[in-house]
Design a protein around this nucleic acid. Structure first.
Lengths: 210, 210
DNA sequence: CCCTCTGTTGGCAAGGTGCCAACAGAGGGC
DNA sequence: GCCCTCTGTTGGCACCTTGCCAACAGAGGG
Protein backbone atom coordinates (compact mmCIF):
# COMPACT_ATOMS: atom_id res chain seq x y z
CA UNK A 1 0.00 0.00 0.00
CA UNK A 2 2.92 2.32 0.55
CA UNK A 3 4.66 1.38 -2.65
CA UNK A 4 1.52 1.30 -4.74
CA UNK A 5 0.69 4.91 -3.92
CA UNK A 6 0.83 6.86 -7.12
CA UNK A 7 -0.76 10.02 -5.89
CA UNK A 8 1.84 10.64 -3.25
CA UNK A 9 1.87 14.36 -2.35
CA UNK A 10 4.98 15.95 -3.90
CA UNK A 11 6.56 17.09 -0.66
CA UNK A 12 5.61 14.08 1.41
CA UNK A 13 9.24 13.19 1.79
CA UNK A 14 9.44 9.46 1.48
CA UNK A 15 11.14 9.09 4.83
CA UNK A 16 14.12 11.08 5.85
CA UNK A 17 16.33 10.15 8.72
CA UNK A 18 17.39 13.14 10.81
CA UNK A 19 19.74 13.55 13.76
CA UNK A 20 17.62 13.78 16.93
CA UNK A 21 18.43 17.42 17.70
CA UNK A 22 17.39 18.52 14.28
CA UNK A 23 14.19 16.51 14.28
CA UNK A 24 13.35 17.80 17.71
CA UNK A 25 13.70 21.37 16.59
CA UNK A 26 11.63 20.85 13.50
CA UNK A 27 8.84 19.35 15.55
CA UNK A 28 8.98 22.24 18.00
CA UNK A 29 8.77 24.69 15.12
CA UNK A 30 5.75 22.96 13.69
CA UNK A 31 4.01 22.78 17.06
CA UNK A 32 4.73 26.42 17.87
CA UNK A 33 3.30 27.42 14.54
CA UNK A 34 0.03 25.66 15.28
CA UNK A 35 -0.27 26.66 18.93
CA UNK A 36 0.01 30.28 17.92
CA UNK A 37 -3.27 30.23 16.11
CA UNK A 38 -5.51 28.06 18.18
CA UNK A 39 -5.88 26.86 21.74
CA UNK A 40 -4.20 23.74 23.05
CA UNK A 41 -7.19 21.44 22.89
CA UNK A 42 -7.98 22.36 19.31
CA UNK A 43 -4.54 21.37 18.08
CA UNK A 44 -4.48 17.63 17.56
CA UNK A 45 -1.29 15.62 17.55
CA UNK A 46 -2.34 14.47 14.10
CA UNK A 47 -2.16 18.06 12.90
CA UNK A 48 1.22 18.64 14.49
CA UNK A 49 2.59 15.47 12.93
CA UNK A 50 1.26 16.49 9.54
CA UNK A 51 2.74 19.97 9.90
CA UNK A 52 6.09 18.46 10.82
CA UNK A 53 5.85 15.87 8.08
CA UNK A 54 6.28 12.87 10.35
CA UNK A 55 4.30 10.02 11.86
CA UNK A 56 2.30 10.83 14.94
CA UNK A 57 4.06 8.24 17.03
CA UNK A 58 7.30 10.16 16.74
CA UNK A 59 5.89 12.94 18.87
CA UNK A 60 5.55 10.59 21.79
CA UNK A 61 9.02 9.26 21.15
CA UNK A 62 10.56 12.73 21.50
CA UNK A 63 8.32 14.44 24.01
CA UNK A 64 6.52 11.73 25.91
CA UNK A 65 3.06 13.10 25.34
CA UNK A 66 1.23 16.05 23.88
CA UNK A 67 1.53 18.04 27.05
CA UNK A 68 5.28 17.48 27.21
CA UNK A 69 5.62 18.90 23.74
CA UNK A 70 3.45 21.84 24.72
CA UNK A 71 5.53 22.69 27.77
CA UNK A 72 8.64 22.58 25.62
CA UNK A 73 7.10 25.08 23.25
CA UNK A 74 6.28 27.36 26.16
CA UNK A 75 9.84 27.17 27.44
CA UNK A 76 11.18 28.12 24.06
CA UNK A 77 8.90 31.13 23.74
CA UNK A 78 9.80 32.74 27.02
CA UNK A 79 12.23 35.63 26.79
CA UNK A 80 14.85 33.86 28.90
CA UNK A 81 17.53 33.30 26.24
CA UNK A 82 17.71 36.97 25.25
CA UNK A 83 18.21 38.00 28.88
CA UNK A 84 21.88 37.33 28.20
CA UNK A 85 22.06 40.42 26.03
CA UNK A 86 20.96 42.72 28.82
CA UNK A 87 24.08 44.46 30.14
CA UNK A 88 24.66 44.08 33.85
CA UNK A 89 26.01 47.53 34.46
CA UNK A 90 25.52 50.70 32.55
CA UNK A 91 27.26 53.96 33.33
CA UNK A 92 25.34 57.18 33.62
CA UNK A 93 22.30 58.51 35.38
CA UNK A 94 19.27 56.51 36.42
CA UNK A 95 17.40 57.93 33.46
CA UNK A 96 20.02 56.58 31.10
CA UNK A 97 20.02 53.16 32.74
CA UNK A 98 16.25 52.94 32.52
CA UNK A 99 16.46 53.95 28.89
CA UNK A 100 18.80 51.03 28.20
CA UNK A 101 16.53 48.56 29.95
CA UNK A 102 13.42 49.66 28.11
CA UNK A 103 15.12 49.67 24.77
CA UNK A 104 16.52 46.22 25.40
CA UNK A 105 13.07 44.93 26.26
CA UNK A 106 11.31 46.32 23.23
CA UNK A 107 14.15 45.31 20.92
CA UNK A 108 14.23 41.72 22.05
CA UNK A 109 10.47 41.38 21.98
CA UNK A 110 9.97 42.97 18.58
CA UNK A 111 11.19 40.15 16.33
CA UNK A 112 9.22 37.54 18.22
CA UNK A 113 6.08 39.41 19.25
CA UNK A 114 3.79 36.72 17.99
CA UNK A 115 5.05 33.91 20.16
CA UNK A 116 5.85 36.23 23.05
CA UNK A 117 2.30 37.46 23.26
CA UNK A 118 0.70 34.11 22.78
CA UNK A 119 2.73 32.73 25.62
CA UNK A 120 2.11 35.49 28.08
CA UNK A 121 -1.23 36.82 27.06
CA UNK A 122 -2.96 33.55 26.46
CA UNK A 123 -5.54 33.99 29.18
CA UNK A 124 -8.35 31.65 29.85
CA UNK A 125 -9.42 29.78 32.92
CA UNK A 126 -6.85 27.18 33.69
CA UNK A 127 -4.59 27.09 36.65
CA UNK A 128 -1.75 25.34 34.95
CA UNK A 129 0.89 25.09 37.61
CA UNK A 130 3.61 23.79 35.31
CA UNK A 131 3.18 26.51 32.74
CA UNK A 132 2.97 29.13 35.45
CA UNK A 133 6.23 27.87 36.93
CA UNK A 134 8.08 28.29 33.65
CA UNK A 135 6.89 31.84 33.25
CA UNK A 136 7.46 32.69 36.89
CA UNK A 137 11.07 31.63 36.65
CA UNK A 138 11.61 33.83 33.61
CA UNK A 139 9.92 36.79 35.29
CA UNK A 140 11.96 36.38 38.45
CA UNK A 141 15.21 36.36 36.55
CA UNK A 142 14.20 39.34 34.47
CA UNK A 143 13.29 41.36 37.56
CA UNK A 144 16.62 40.53 39.10
CA UNK A 145 18.52 41.62 36.03
CA UNK A 146 16.66 44.89 35.87
CA UNK A 147 17.51 45.70 39.47
CA UNK A 148 21.15 44.95 38.82
CA UNK A 149 21.17 47.14 35.79
CA UNK A 150 19.72 50.16 37.49
CA UNK A 151 22.01 49.66 40.46
CA UNK A 152 19.55 48.54 43.12
CA UNK A 153 19.89 45.53 45.40
CA UNK A 154 18.83 42.54 43.23
CA UNK A 155 18.11 40.47 46.30
CA UNK A 156 15.62 42.76 48.00
CA UNK A 157 12.28 40.97 48.01
CA UNK A 158 10.11 44.02 47.93
CA UNK A 159 12.01 45.60 45.06
CA UNK A 160 11.80 42.35 43.13
CA UNK A 161 8.07 42.15 43.66
CA UNK A 162 7.57 45.72 42.48
CA UNK A 163 9.64 45.16 39.37
CA UNK A 164 7.64 42.02 38.62
CA UNK A 165 4.48 44.12 38.88
CA UNK A 166 6.07 46.48 36.42
CA UNK A 167 6.59 43.45 34.21
CA UNK A 168 2.84 43.11 33.97
CA UNK A 169 2.65 46.66 32.68
CA UNK A 170 5.39 45.88 30.18
CA UNK A 171 3.62 42.81 28.80
CA UNK A 172 0.31 44.57 28.41
CA UNK A 173 2.01 47.54 26.81
CA UNK A 174 3.58 45.26 24.22
CA UNK A 175 0.14 43.86 23.62
CA UNK A 176 -1.32 47.31 23.01
CA UNK A 177 1.55 48.27 20.76
CA UNK A 178 2.17 45.16 18.70
CA UNK A 179 -1.15 43.36 18.69
CA UNK A 180 -3.86 45.94 19.03
CA UNK A 181 -1.76 48.73 17.54
CA UNK A 182 -3.37 51.35 19.72
CA UNK A 183 0.04 52.75 20.64
CA UNK A 184 3.08 53.42 18.50
CA UNK A 185 6.40 52.04 19.58
CA UNK A 186 7.61 55.50 20.68
CA UNK A 187 4.48 55.89 22.80
CA UNK A 188 4.99 52.48 24.35
CA UNK A 189 8.61 53.29 24.94
CA UNK A 190 7.76 56.54 26.62
CA UNK A 191 5.24 54.97 28.95
CA UNK A 192 7.57 52.19 30.00
CA UNK A 193 10.47 54.59 30.47
CA UNK A 194 8.50 57.06 32.55
CA UNK A 195 6.96 54.48 34.83
CA UNK A 196 10.18 52.57 35.33
CA UNK A 197 12.02 55.76 36.15
CA UNK A 198 9.27 56.71 38.55
CA UNK A 199 9.45 53.32 40.19
CA UNK A 200 13.21 53.06 40.50
CA UNK A 201 13.58 56.60 41.77
CA UNK A 202 11.13 55.70 44.45
CA UNK A 203 13.02 52.56 45.36
CA UNK A 204 16.29 54.44 45.33
CA UNK A 205 14.93 56.84 47.90
CA UNK A 206 13.97 54.01 50.19
CA UNK A 207 17.07 51.98 49.55
CA UNK A 208 20.07 54.12 48.63
CA UNK A 209 23.04 52.09 47.46
CA UNK A 210 26.16 52.74 45.41
CA UNK B 1 -30.72 -1.82 38.14
CA UNK B 2 -31.49 1.60 39.46
CA UNK B 3 -33.97 0.40 42.04
CA UNK B 4 -31.94 -2.58 43.12
CA UNK B 5 -28.94 -0.47 44.03
CA UNK B 6 -28.36 -0.80 47.73
CA UNK B 7 -24.98 0.79 47.90
CA UNK B 8 -26.13 4.03 46.42
CA UNK B 9 -23.77 6.84 47.51
CA UNK B 10 -25.56 8.88 50.19
CA UNK B 11 -25.54 12.18 48.33
CA UNK B 12 -26.12 10.76 44.88
CA UNK B 13 -29.46 12.43 44.76
CA UNK B 14 -31.81 10.00 43.09
CA UNK B 15 -32.73 12.47 40.41
CA UNK B 16 -33.87 15.92 41.15
CA UNK B 17 -35.62 18.10 38.67
CA UNK B 18 -34.41 21.68 38.72
CA UNK B 19 -35.50 24.84 36.95
CA UNK B 20 -33.09 25.49 34.06
CA UNK B 21 -31.56 28.65 35.54
CA UNK B 22 -30.74 26.94 38.76
CA UNK B 23 -29.30 23.87 37.09
CA UNK B 24 -27.27 26.04 34.80
CA UNK B 25 -25.76 27.89 37.70
CA UNK B 26 -24.93 24.75 39.60
CA UNK B 27 -23.14 23.34 36.58
CA UNK B 28 -21.19 26.56 36.14
CA UNK B 29 -20.20 26.44 39.79
CA UNK B 30 -18.96 22.90 39.47
CA UNK B 31 -17.04 23.62 36.29
CA UNK B 32 -15.45 26.76 37.71
CA UNK B 33 -14.34 24.78 40.74
CA UNK B 34 -12.53 22.25 38.57
CA UNK B 35 -11.07 24.67 36.06
CA UNK B 36 -9.47 26.59 38.88
CA UNK B 37 -7.17 23.75 39.74
CA UNK B 38 -6.19 22.25 36.43
CA UNK B 39 -5.90 23.22 32.80
CA UNK B 40 -8.78 22.87 30.37
CA UNK B 41 -7.64 19.66 28.73
CA UNK B 42 -7.14 17.88 32.02
CA UNK B 43 -10.71 18.50 33.13
CA UNK B 44 -12.96 15.90 31.55
CA UNK B 45 -16.65 16.40 31.06
CA UNK B 46 -17.07 13.23 33.08
CA UNK B 47 -15.42 14.94 36.03
CA UNK B 48 -17.56 18.05 35.66
CA UNK B 49 -20.73 15.97 35.51
CA UNK B 50 -19.68 14.05 38.60
CA UNK B 51 -18.88 17.29 40.45
CA UNK B 52 -22.26 18.69 39.49
CA UNK B 53 -24.04 15.44 40.33
CA UNK B 54 -25.64 15.01 36.94
CA UNK B 55 -25.38 12.94 33.79
CA UNK B 56 -22.73 13.95 31.31
CA UNK B 57 -25.20 14.45 28.52
CA UNK B 58 -26.81 17.31 30.40
CA UNK B 59 -23.72 19.43 29.89
CA UNK B 60 -24.24 19.31 26.14
CA UNK B 61 -27.89 20.08 26.59
CA UNK B 62 -27.14 23.30 28.45
CA UNK B 63 -23.90 24.48 26.89
CA UNK B 64 -23.61 22.78 23.53
CA UNK B 65 -20.16 21.42 24.09
CA UNK B 66 -17.30 21.47 26.54
CA UNK B 67 -15.84 24.60 25.07
CA UNK B 68 -19.15 26.42 25.33
CA UNK B 69 -19.27 25.64 29.01
CA UNK B 70 -15.70 26.80 29.38
CA UNK B 71 -16.35 30.15 27.71
CA UNK B 72 -19.32 30.65 29.98
CA UNK B 73 -17.12 30.10 33.00
CA UNK B 74 -14.65 32.65 31.68
CA UNK B 75 -17.42 35.19 31.18
CA UNK B 76 -18.58 34.72 34.71
CA UNK B 77 -15.11 35.19 36.17
CA UNK B 78 -14.37 38.47 34.51
CA UNK B 79 -14.81 41.51 36.68
CA UNK B 80 -17.55 42.95 34.48
CA UNK B 81 -20.50 42.64 36.86
CA UNK B 82 -18.82 44.53 39.67
CA UNK B 83 -18.01 47.41 37.35
CA UNK B 84 -21.48 48.64 38.21
CA UNK B 85 -20.30 49.52 41.68
CA UNK B 86 -17.64 51.90 40.43
CA UNK B 87 -18.98 55.44 40.86
CA UNK B 88 -18.97 57.51 37.70
CA UNK B 89 -18.07 60.77 39.31
CA UNK B 90 -16.28 61.51 42.52
CA UNK B 91 -15.77 64.96 43.93
CA UNK B 92 -12.37 66.09 45.09
CA UNK B 93 -8.82 66.21 43.83
CA UNK B 94 -7.29 63.83 41.33
CA UNK B 95 -5.50 62.11 44.20
CA UNK B 96 -8.83 61.41 45.88
CA UNK B 97 -10.39 60.12 42.69
CA UNK B 98 -7.49 57.79 42.08
CA UNK B 99 -7.77 56.59 45.62
CA UNK B 100 -11.42 55.64 45.05
CA UNK B 101 -10.59 53.76 41.86
CA UNK B 102 -7.79 51.77 43.41
CA UNK B 103 -9.80 50.88 46.48
CA UNK B 104 -12.72 49.82 44.33
CA UNK B 105 -10.46 47.57 42.29
CA UNK B 106 -8.81 45.84 45.22
CA UNK B 107 -12.11 45.53 47.08
CA UNK B 108 -13.95 43.88 44.23
CA UNK B 109 -11.10 41.56 43.44
CA UNK B 110 -10.43 40.45 46.98
CA UNK B 111 -13.40 38.12 47.53
CA UNK B 112 -12.87 36.40 44.19
CA UNK B 113 -9.11 36.42 43.80
CA UNK B 114 -8.94 32.76 42.96
CA UNK B 115 -11.10 32.85 39.88
CA UNK B 116 -9.96 36.33 38.92
CA UNK B 117 -6.36 35.27 38.76
CA UNK B 118 -6.98 31.99 37.03
CA UNK B 119 -8.89 33.76 34.33
CA UNK B 120 -6.42 36.51 33.70
CA UNK B 121 -3.18 34.95 34.66
CA UNK B 122 -3.66 31.61 33.04
CA UNK B 123 -0.85 31.95 30.58
CA UNK B 124 0.33 29.28 28.27
CA UNK B 125 0.71 29.12 24.54
CA UNK B 126 -2.71 29.28 22.98
CA UNK B 127 -4.06 32.09 20.93
CA UNK B 128 -7.63 31.64 21.89
CA UNK B 129 -9.42 34.37 20.05
CA UNK B 130 -12.76 33.81 21.73
CA UNK B 131 -11.41 33.93 25.24
CA UNK B 132 -9.27 36.93 24.37
CA UNK B 133 -12.35 38.73 23.07
CA UNK B 134 -14.22 38.25 26.34
CA UNK B 135 -11.36 39.64 28.36
CA UNK B 136 -10.70 42.46 25.92
CA UNK B 137 -14.26 43.64 26.22
CA UNK B 138 -14.05 43.70 29.99
CA UNK B 139 -10.73 45.55 29.91
CA UNK B 140 -12.05 48.12 27.47
CA UNK B 141 -15.04 48.86 29.60
CA UNK B 142 -12.97 49.09 32.75
CA UNK B 143 -10.55 51.54 31.14
CA UNK B 144 -13.44 53.66 30.02
CA UNK B 145 -14.95 53.76 33.48
CA UNK B 146 -11.65 54.72 35.04
CA UNK B 147 -11.23 57.65 32.68
CA UNK B 148 -14.75 58.82 33.47
CA UNK B 149 -14.11 58.58 37.16
CA UNK B 150 -10.95 60.64 37.10
CA UNK B 151 -12.55 63.18 34.81
CA UNK B 152 -10.68 62.55 31.57
CA UNK B 153 -12.20 62.05 28.14
CA UNK B 154 -13.38 58.42 28.12
CA UNK B 155 -13.35 58.34 24.33
CA UNK B 156 -9.77 59.36 23.73
CA UNK B 157 -8.05 56.37 22.15
CA UNK B 158 -4.61 57.08 23.47
CA UNK B 159 -5.80 57.57 27.04
CA UNK B 160 -7.77 54.35 26.82
CA UNK B 161 -4.73 52.45 25.60
CA UNK B 162 -2.58 53.81 28.40
CA UNK B 163 -5.14 52.90 31.03
CA UNK B 164 -5.38 49.39 29.60
CA UNK B 165 -1.62 49.13 29.93
CA UNK B 166 -2.06 50.18 33.52
CA UNK B 167 -4.55 47.33 33.80
CA UNK B 168 -1.71 44.92 33.14
CA UNK B 169 0.14 46.39 36.06
CA UNK B 170 -2.95 46.03 38.20
CA UNK B 171 -3.46 42.37 37.36
CA UNK B 172 0.13 41.45 38.02
CA UNK B 173 0.09 43.40 41.25
CA UNK B 174 -2.91 41.44 42.43
CA UNK B 175 -1.00 38.31 41.55
CA UNK B 176 1.98 39.37 43.65
CA UNK B 177 -0.22 40.34 46.53
CA UNK B 178 -2.84 37.59 46.65
CA UNK B 179 -1.13 34.62 45.08
CA UNK B 180 2.58 34.95 45.69
CA UNK B 181 2.12 37.06 48.80
CA UNK B 182 5.26 39.03 48.14
CA UNK B 183 3.43 42.28 48.77
CA UNK B 184 0.93 43.23 51.45
CA UNK B 185 -2.33 44.78 50.42
CA UNK B 186 -1.22 48.23 51.59
CA UNK B 187 1.93 47.91 49.51
CA UNK B 188 -0.07 46.85 46.47
CA UNK B 189 -2.46 49.69 47.09
CA UNK B 190 0.33 52.21 47.32
CA UNK B 191 1.94 51.07 44.10
CA UNK B 192 -1.30 51.16 42.16
CA UNK B 193 -2.25 54.53 43.60
CA UNK B 194 1.09 56.15 42.84
CA UNK B 195 1.34 54.88 39.31
CA UNK B 196 -2.25 55.73 38.44
CA UNK B 197 -1.84 59.20 39.84
CA UNK B 198 1.36 59.60 37.87
CA UNK B 199 -0.35 58.44 34.72
CA UNK B 200 -3.51 60.51 35.02
CA UNK B 201 -1.62 63.65 35.95
CA UNK B 202 0.37 63.18 32.82
CA UNK B 203 -2.74 62.71 30.72
CA UNK B 204 -4.38 65.70 32.36
CA UNK B 205 -1.46 67.87 31.31
CA UNK B 206 -1.85 66.78 27.70
CA UNK B 207 -5.62 66.85 27.71
CA UNK B 208 -7.04 69.36 30.17
CA UNK B 209 -10.76 69.07 30.57
CA UNK B 210 -13.27 70.12 33.15
C1' DC C 1 28.20 -7.34 1.48
C1' DC C 2 26.03 -8.13 5.76
C1' DC C 3 24.94 -6.76 10.44
C1' DT C 4 23.83 -3.86 14.02
C1' DC C 5 22.11 0.48 15.80
C1' DT C 6 18.55 3.48 16.18
C1' DG C 7 15.35 6.83 13.91
C1' DT C 8 10.75 6.05 12.21
C1' DT C 9 6.34 4.05 11.16
C1' DG C 10 1.53 2.03 11.51
C1' DG C 11 -2.04 0.07 13.98
C1' DC C 12 -4.27 -1.30 18.35
C1' DA C 13 -6.65 -0.32 22.73
C1' DA C 14 -8.33 2.94 26.07
C1' DG C 15 -10.47 7.06 27.09
C1' DG C 16 -12.97 11.36 26.01
C1' DT C 17 -16.69 13.85 23.45
C1' DG C 18 -21.06 14.84 20.89
C1' DC C 19 -25.44 13.19 19.86
C1' DC C 20 -29.95 11.23 20.27
C1' DA C 21 -33.72 8.34 21.47
C1' DA C 22 -35.89 6.92 25.54
C1' DC C 23 -37.20 7.83 30.51
C1' DA C 24 -39.54 10.21 34.25
C1' DG C 25 -40.74 14.22 37.53
C1' DA C 26 -44.21 18.16 37.70
C1' DG C 27 -48.25 20.55 36.67
C1' DG C 28 -52.88 21.22 34.15
C1' DG C 29 -57.43 19.38 32.34
C1' DC C 30 -61.28 16.44 33.14
C1' DG D 1 -57.90 11.87 42.10
C1' DC D 2 -56.31 10.11 37.58
C1' DC D 3 -54.24 10.68 33.27
C1' DC D 4 -51.68 13.30 29.88
C1' DT D 5 -48.53 16.37 28.17
C1' DC D 6 -44.34 19.05 28.72
C1' DT D 7 -39.72 19.14 29.33
C1' DG D 8 -35.68 18.23 32.43
C1' DT D 9 -32.75 14.25 32.57
C1' DT D 10 -30.53 9.96 31.55
C1' DG D 11 -27.77 6.16 29.31
C1' DG D 12 -25.49 4.27 25.59
C1' DC D 13 -23.72 4.37 20.80
C1' DA D 14 -20.39 6.07 17.35
C1' DC D 15 -16.53 8.89 16.34
C1' DC D 16 -12.19 11.00 17.33
C1' DT D 17 -7.92 11.62 19.85
C1' DT D 18 -4.13 9.89 22.48
C1' DG D 19 -0.40 6.82 24.31
C1' DC D 20 1.89 2.66 23.52
C1' DC D 21 4.50 -0.86 21.25
C1' DA D 22 6.12 -4.15 18.01
C1' DA D 23 7.84 -4.10 13.48
C1' DC D 24 10.32 -1.59 9.66
C1' DA D 25 14.25 0.58 7.44
C1' DG D 26 18.13 4.16 6.64
C1' DA D 27 23.21 4.67 7.87
C1' DG D 28 27.67 3.34 9.22
C1' DG D 29 31.27 -0.29 10.76
C1' DG D 30 33.39 -4.91 10.35
Amino acid sequence: MSQAADDRPPDAVVRRRLPPDERRESILDAAARLFEHQPYSRVSTVAIAREAGIARGLLNHYFGDKRGLYLEVVRRSVLLPTLEDLPTRVPGSMAEKVEVAVRWFLDSVEPRVASYLTVLGAEGVADDEEVAAIIRRADDLAAQRVLELVGLDPADERSLALVRCYGGLAKTTVHEWARRETLTRPQAHELLRDVLLFLTSDLLRAQPRG
